[in-house]
Structures are given as C-alpha cells and as structure tokens.
C-alpha cells in the first residue's frame, strides 16, 4: 500500500463554490466595482504565486498580477465560463509571464506546446537514501531555500504544470485548461517535474546525510 500524501491545500471554499462564482461574474459584468475588488481579494494571491514562480522576481510578478486583472476585467464579456474563473485568470497570468520570459530569452522559451518530451526526461542517477535524515534537517531555512531554488530551476515547460497542479492544487483537467495542454501531457510533465526535483534535491540531501554519517 502507498502511504497517503497530503493534498495541496491552497484552495479556499469560495473558489470551489460555483454558484458564488456565477454571481460574482454577473456582478463584474454589470460593472460592480465591489465585485472586482472581491475577485482580486479571492484570486490575486494565487495569480501572484504562479507569476512569481514563473519569473522569479517579486516586482515583475506584481506587474503580471496587475496586467492579469486589467486584461481580465477588460475582456470579461469574452469569458464563456467553460473553465472556472481562477483557471481563466491563471491562463492570462501564465501567458503574460511567458511573454516576459520570451522577451528575456527569445531562443529558449517557446509559447508553442511542448514538443521535445525527451529533453527533460529524467532517469534517476542519485540513489542514496537520504530519507534517514532527522526530520529537523528537512525543516531548516537552508533546506527550504534549497527547495525553493530547485522549484525555481525547474525547466520552464515543467514549471507551470508543477506550480498549478502541485502547489496551487488545481486538478489535472483544470491545469490542462489553464495551460492549453492535453490531460496526458499534464500528467507526463508533472511526473517529470517530480523526478527532476527528486534528482535535484538528492544532491543536497545526500551530502547532508553523508556529512551526518561521518560525524557519527
């Protein structure tokens, strides 16, 4: 039997309430400014987190949040409700982040669907069992920084899938809608992101575990 892993828990109850979202949308379309502020309160943190993980810079992430809501309220009439409002907002933010990344690295970032699936295929080479480390070693500021750095270094085609599915708690289908990918592509990318992170973190935790063994 597999041990149960905790589910991502960032979704608030309002985000899951379809009737509430429908009323909110109607109010935004009717020009209700309080509804726009409510929408911002509900969704800006998630949009910010995605933007930050994508571009890695808090100021730029804030610009993307602003761009996202400006764009969303301006085009709210074109939102057909085939996805949830949050999925639509994530999609706008993702595209805005991608445009910025493309401007910075025009040769390396593509807005086209990911085609070279083998590019980031991950065959495990780190085979030291670092799970033996005491729990407090996983909870240090250094370990958390290492994990943050690793997430920031995830190959771009894997990063958005990882953030939406694993950190923001979207379903596979919602992630696929937000990023305009197929469900199977989301699953493949998520799996590769996990293996990539395991490999990347193994370097750090193996060294820590070996140092600890030498001391004892």
């Amino acid at each position: 039997m597999t041990k149960e892993l905790p589910a991502p828990t960032l979704l608030s109850p309002e985000l899951l309430d379809e009737a509430y979202e429908q009323r909110l949308l109607e109010r935004i379309r009717a020009g209700d400014r309080t509804a726009c502020a409510e929408c911002i309160d509900l969704h800006s943190a998630g949009v910010y987190r995605l933007a930050l993980r994508m571009v890695g810079d808090p100021h730029e992430a804030e610009d993307i949040v602003q761009e996202t809501f400006l764009n969303a309220f301006r085009t709210i009439d074109s939102f057909e409700g085939r996805s949830s409002l949050s999925t639509w907002l994530y999609r706008i933010a993702y595209n805005a982040a991608l445009m910025r990344l493309r401007k910075k690295q025009p040769l390396h970032v593509s807005i086209e669907p990911y085609v070279d699936e083998e590019e980031t295929a991950t065959t495990p080479v780190q085979l030291f069992d670092w799970c033996c480390l005491p729990e407090e070693d996983f909870q240090t500021a250094e370990a958390r920084n290492e994990l943050e750095r690793a997430i920031g270094e995830l190959p771009e085609p894997l990063r958005a899938v990882f953030v939406l599915r694993e950190l923001e708690g979207l379903s596979t289908e919602e992630t696929a809608q937000a990023l305009d990918l197929s469900v199977s592509n989301v699953k493949v990318r998520l799996h590769r992101a996990r293996l990539w992170l395991r490999e990347r973190l193994s370097g750090y935790f193996t060294e820590l575990a070996q140092r600890s063994q030498e001391r004892n």
Partner: peptide
C-alpha cells in the same frame, strides 16, 4: 522513498 519524501516536502512548503 525519496520521491515520496520530495513530494511531501514541497507540499508542506509555506507558500510565498
């Protein structure tokens, strides 16, 4: 085991 631990670590990471 290390993959399971990796997942556990990032799922319990405080969000920015």
């Amino acid at each position: 085991d290390t993959l399971r631990k990796t997942i556990l670590l990032y799922r319990t990471l405080p969000p920015p």
